[in-house]
Each structure stands twice: as C-alpha cells, then as structure tokens.
Design a protein around this nucleic acid. Sequence first.
DNA 1: AATTTTTCCGAGACCGTTCCCGGGAACGGG
DNA 2: CCCGTTCCCGGGAACGGTCTCGGAAAAATT
Lengths: 325, 325
Amino acid sequence: MLGISKSTVSRALAGRSDIHPETKRKILDLASQLQYEPNTLAINLKQQKTNTIGVIVPETINRFFARAIGGIQKQADMAGMNVMICQSNESYIAEKKNLHSLVSSRVDGIIVSISTETDRSDHFVSLTEKGIPLVFFDRVFEDIVASQVVTNNYEIAMEGTEHLIKQGCKRIAFVTGPEHLFNSRSRLSGYLDALRKHNVQVKDSYIVHSHYRSDKVEEYTRYLLNLPQRPDAIFAINDYAALEMIHIMKKSGLRIPQDVAVLGFNNENLCRFVEPSLSSIDHPAHDIGASAAEILINHIRHQDLKPEKRVIKSNLIIRESTEVK
Amino acid sequence: MLGISKSTVSRALAGRSDIHPETKRKILDLASQLQYEPNTLAINLKQQKTNTIGVIVPETINRFFARAIGGIQKQADMAGMNVMICQSNESYIAEKKNLHSLVSSRVDGIIVSISTETDRSDHFVSLTEKGIPLVFFDRVFEDIVASQVVTNNYEIAMEGTEHLIKQGCKRIAFVTGPEHLFNSRSRLSGYLDALRKHNVQVKDSYIVHSHYRSDKVEEYTRYLLNLPQRPDAIFAINDYAALEMIHIMKKSGLRIPQDVAVLGFNNENLCRFVEPSLSSIDHPAHDIGASAAEILINHIRHQDLKPEKRVIKSNLIIRESTEVK
DNA sequence: AATTTTTCCGAGACCGTTCCCGGGAACGGG
DNA sequence: CCCGTTCCCGGGAACGGTCTCGGAAAAATT
C-alpha cells in the first residue's frame, strides 16, 4: 500500500535504526490503522526460538502449583517471555503428551513438577540431548542431571516432628505422599530421624502413604483413629487434609490439640481462620516457581551453564492446633 | 536419508492414504528412531490455524477460575485442541496485552472473563472484525454482541437473600464486587428485590462494594460490626471472605449463626469442614468453563453461527452458618 | 570536483511444513 | 497392443515474517 518493500516494513516494526524516520512513521501509522498484528508463528519459525517457557504441573487447582506458576509468570514477564502451562492431572501418560506438545511447539525451555504416577525419567533425557533447558521444582528426580529447585523437606519434616515431640506427643502419625517420590521420602526420613533422635518409638502403622488427591482423607483418618494405640499427633500432607481430619476427629469427640495435635502443610490462608487455628509449614511456592524460572531463563540465555540445584527454606508456623501445653 | 522427497514424508506423517505402506513404514520407523518432532510452528503457519484456544482470566490462583479452566481444558482435550492460559491479574492493561499476545499467536478462538478494572469493551470489538470467535464467561459485558456463559446471578442472590429472611434476619448486609461489573449488579438487584418483596427495609450502609481481592475483609467487617444497627446476617462475596469474617466476629464474642448468620459464595470444599459449617452458593465453575469451551469450539468449526447465551444454574447449599433457629 | 562514507532501501534466501499439480509406472479391459 | 485408471511419488509455491547482502543516493571529506 505504501509502495515499500517488506524488508523496510520489517525494519520499521522491529524498531531498527537503519530506516528513515519519516518512512518509519508512515509504516507505523498505517500498521496501527490497519490493526496489524505481527504473526508470532512466522517470527518464531524464522528466529528458531519462541520466547516462551513451557510448564508442566500436576494440576493448577492445587494452590501450591497455582502460586508457583504465579512466580514463574512474574519472572517470565520481567524477562519478556511467555509461559505455556500444561497439566498432567497426575497422570504419567498425560505428562508425556504434554512434553511432546511443548517440544513440538518449540518452547525455549521447560519447567516441570512431576506427577504422582511418574516413577521414571526416560521421557526427560531426550530433552538434554536436544539441548532444551530443563528445570524441575518441588517434585523432582534425585538421580537425573538437571537443575532443581526444592525445599528443605528433610529438615522441615524433622523440625515439625521435633516440635510435636516437644509438645509431649509420643505417638506421632505421619501422612505423606507416594513412596516413589523423592519429596515424600525426604520428609519421611526427616520424620524418622527426629523420632530416633529423641528416642521415640517408630511404628509403621503410624505412617500413611496417601495420594495428594484428597478423596482418601476420611478413610485413613478412621484407620488412624481405630488403631489400638491412637496417635496423639498427626503431621498431615497438607492443610486441606488437616482441616478435614480435624473435622472428623472433633465429631468423634476428640479435642484438638489436647487429644490429638495436628500439623498441616502449605500454610494456606485459611490456617489462621479455622478453629483451632492450624499450625503449618509455610511452603514458599511463589519463590520456588520464581527461582525455577530464573534458573531456566539463565540456561536459555547461556546454553553452556552447569545444572544448578537450589534449596528454598520452608518455615514452621506454630498456631493453636499444636500448642498442647 | 531415505532418498525420499519431503512431500512423501509429509504424507506418511500426516497419515494420508496415497502412499505405499512399505514406504510409510520406513519413514515412520526412521522418524521415531531420530525422535523426530514435527514443528508445530511451521504447521500452524502453513495451515493458518493453531488448534489452540486462548483463555484470559483474572487469576488462576482463584479457585473458581482454576476450576473453570479445568472445564475448558477437558472440552479442548476432547476436541483435540490446546489451551493457552493468560492472567490479567485484575488489570485492564495486562488484559489488553494478553489479548494482543493471543491474537499474535493466532489462536483459533478466545475465552475471557474480564478483570475487575475493565469497564469498557473496545479492545474486544476488533476480534469480531477479524473473525476470531469470542466467548465470555462469568464476568461479562451485558451490551457486547458475543457469546456468553453466566450463572443465574440475579435469581440465586434472590434465593439466598430470601433464605436469610426466612431465618428471621432483618438486617442483611451484602458484600459484592465492583459496581461496574454486570455480575455484581445482577446479584445486587436480586438481593434488593428479595428485600422489597418481603418488605424488609433496604439500607445502603449494609451494602459493601469490595474487590475480589481479599485484603479488605477485615476492614469492611469492622465497618459492618460498628454500624449503629449491626447486621444480623451477611451475604459474603466468597467463602474465604466469609471464613475470615466469621473468625473476626467470633473474636468479638458474636455467635454464628445466632447473632449473625453468614452465607458464603462458591461452595468450596472447606465449607463442610469449618465450624460452623458454611452455607454457600454452589457455583458450577467446571461446567461454566466447559460450556464456554463447547460454544467456542462450535463457533470455530462453524464460523457463521449466531452468538449464544447460556445460563448455568447455581444452587443454594444450606449448612449451619445460616440455620438460626 | 572527486572520492569516501553514511544513510536508506530492495531483492531474495530461508525457517519447516502443507498441498496442489503433474507425471511415471503398473495394471486392467477391450 | 493400446489406452484409461489407479497408485505413488516429486517439484515447487506458499504461509509471514527476518536477515544478509548489495547498491543507489545523499552527505561528508579531501
């Protein structure tokens, strides 16, 4: 329309300097008048990069991951990058499909928190071969050579357990995730080591391996309550489970925390508003996500960096539900 | 490597019929051996469609939207489409940026729930000009000609208010969203009409226009409690706010529901587990999202369809927090 | 005035696919 | 034996941009 070559138009739109100001103005004016939107597909195809980072999480409905995604997005925004979010729905197959889809879309790098079902890492090794940067967060593999952002699961589980012991609890139940997840195992060791350190007897029947999905809470709560030696404290897998357990136990006439102390996980907002207010582990989801994104973006910009492992500290927040006194 | 033209390779990979089975097998074998991933960018560029639907929501940390996205994703999966999620963070500018980004990425259609700040719809009109299908859900414009999926806000607010009136409440406070949102206005009219219908006095001081962001809960709760005529019922903006309000009121020595009945919104899981259990409006977020996606996909497939408006019914769930007697 | 430098622009290859079109080989029927 | 079909396959344009290269005109230098 302007009798100008597409090279020049490209120059104007890309804001490059080797173009006459007058010409540039004319192009820009016409572009905005026509509501021209550059075709990202074409640009990405030509540039061989997409400026987007792919994210695979088990499910965004989970507040921990929702907050982590918030952190990722914030970092991405600052770096001028886009984010593409996939959910594995805790399924190995879906996770694999997500991965293919992201690779096909030519994302510049990928951030993953693996699904409950995932017990092998073969689908990720091809990424490193292809030179696609990869960062795991929270739910990670211990053996794979890739960057990782995790919390100090072992230490915080230990600290939480010790807190319960100091409250005078002797029969501490521990609800954790699937055994094959590194996370669950770390927390479990922290719990076990705390018991041993303080000469509290370890009983296998007090250890429950649950899924993160919460539809089994009632089942294992009843199981724990019906044990010959009922626990006097429960370290729950997350705050929602803790809340439900408290509800069930109250109905059974148990007092919280006098009869059973309850310690949650994640420190959701609701912890402060329930009765009794819920002690919990503050899990800095946002920071974890932000860190993962930061590392990934670094690796995208400098391909030759070594994998980095970062540990973000969680904090024990003590409230009424564990103040036995 | 096979001495075969790219046309033939394309035929094999696309699973078309005009190719010799033997040739096809050889291509497929080599492809999987080389871990070949077709370049979605190039395909989309050539096809002039991306098979993805764009979604803009205020924030995914909000469980309502997280669940709606779940519904969208489910429908998209069934249709073999992808989903690209953007957050406006309740900001008009970010919403506009998201929109540009999605259009630039050439998504086939867009689903939007507008931000709190958004009070005009000009940025959406250009979409219809470009022929990009558009569906709003929950937070919609009333005037724009586009498909919409909403709940029966007016009716359910009316029903909820009537329920409170039947419990003997005379001074019913109503906390709702920003005035310029259609949603808020509909709910408000439902509330007002219920009061008028039952000859309950309407008092402006009982109406609080809040943001969906929850950092003002304590402020307006104190405001309501300090009114000369303290309300004897509160219809809250959502369950989390309701929970926090209950917490504050209990601390002030008020009994729920005897002194103040509280009705929440969204029917989160926690409603069942708190004390007193929380009456709420069950907001079928998943179905709303699924409906929006269904309509959008229809419009993508058949460009000439008329805009469709769908109403999904919410349900009043009565629990202890409003059982005054 | 001649030469060099700078400024600005156009031509065209290229990114990785799809798809139209055309054509050769094999096959079948008359 | 000839001709029409069918079956496969290759060539090459196209999608919408970027980017390198080269060159003309203008400006600056000698």
